[in-house]
């Protein structure tokens, strides 16, 4: 099995580069990432297409979360971590000296595995936290942002009478949609989601999946999931990772129905993982 673990060859890389009409939003080029001395990503190359949902799948520990956290420079927060290679956002390297990590994170938002609303804030304040804590003072526009963003994630009707209640008082699924609203309120261009449904029940999961599908009109979405069915349901493109390497990346239907790598086929048919 191990001998079939190979990075994309040159031919395939060229195939995946944006010769087609699809616009590239983010481009990962030769990315290596480490936790202290342990290498978590090995020469990853990936094009994230504009206004599409890209799923990253693979067994636990394959580096999918690390990869997504490299896309908004969250990986570097881990003590002892290191990144080499580049990640281009609209053609500009987010690790370049002319881009500030803070600005990158405002353009590339993130939703986490476990819903993490700010426990000391109300529902309304959670939504606008990103704006307020970035120094936006305009109180009148906040109400507008609260309503628009909560409507966007389908939470407005459920919470409109309880906006002053603590964000932590909501159910898990509602909390996760609140977190998505919080991420959308600062109007990012890309939304990264790190297994956003893994802590949720099926009903809440369905709502979030629906939401993700609707979000791609406005945003580029990258989602990490351990759930292959989820990737098949919502993603336009899917990347399969194994042992820190990107094994295969293609349109979702192609990857699931006609994988080119034996390893991919073995994984999606449940032979390991």
């Amino acid at each position: 099995m191990l001998e079939s673990v190979t990075s994309l060859d040159v031919e395939e890389r060229q195939r995946l580069e944006p010769h087609d009409a699809l616009e590239t939003k983010m481009e990962v080029v030769g990315l290596d990432a480490w936790y202290s001395t342990k290498q978590a990503l090995v020469d990853v190359n990936l094009n994230v297409r504009s206004n599409k949902v890209t799923a990253i799948i693979g067994p636990s520990g394959c580096g999918k979360s690390t990869l997504i956290r490299c896309l908004n420079r969250m990986h570097e927060l881990v003590p002892g971590s290191r990144v080499t290679g580049s990640v281009l956002l609209d053609g500009k390297n987010i690790y370049g000296s002319d881009l500030d990590a803070v600005d990158v994170r405002r353009r590339v938002g993130m939703v986490f595995q476990k819903p993490n609303p700010f426990p000391n804030m109300s529902i309304a304040d959670n939504v606008t936290a990103g704006l307020k804590l970035a120094g936006v003072k305009d109180e009148s526009s906040m109400k507008e942002v609260e309503r628009r963003t909560l409507e966007r994630v389908g939470l407005w009707d459920e919470v409109k009478d309880d906006l002053k209640r603590s964000g932590a008082s909501l159910s898990g699924g509602q909390q996760q949609r609140l977190c998505i609203a919080r991420a959308l309120a600062i109007e990012p261009e890309v939304l990264l989601m790190d297994e956003p449904c893994s802590a949720l029940d099926p009903t809440a999961t369905a709502k979030i999946e629906q939401l993700i599908t609707s979000l791609k009109q406005t945003y580029t979405v990258v989602i990490v999931t351990h759930n292959m069915q989820q990737a098949a349901r919502i993603a336009d493109y899917t990347a399969f990772m194994y042992l820190g390497k990107l094994i295969e990346y293609d349109e979702t239907t192609t990857l699931f129905e006609n994988p080119r790598q034996e390893l991919t086929e073995r994984y999606i048919t449940g032979k390991f993982g």
């Binding site: 908004n72 969250m74 990158v104 405002r106 993490n116 700010f118 804590l133 991420a183």
Partner: peptide, 21 residues
């Protein structure tokens, strides 16, 4: 919890504001 820190930093909130939070 560290998840609160991460939530703040991922929102593009600067380090000192995150510390205040």
């Amino acid at each position: 919890p560290n998840s609160i820190r991460e939530a703040s930093i991922a929102l593009g909130i600067r380090k000192w504001r995150t510390s205040l939070l």
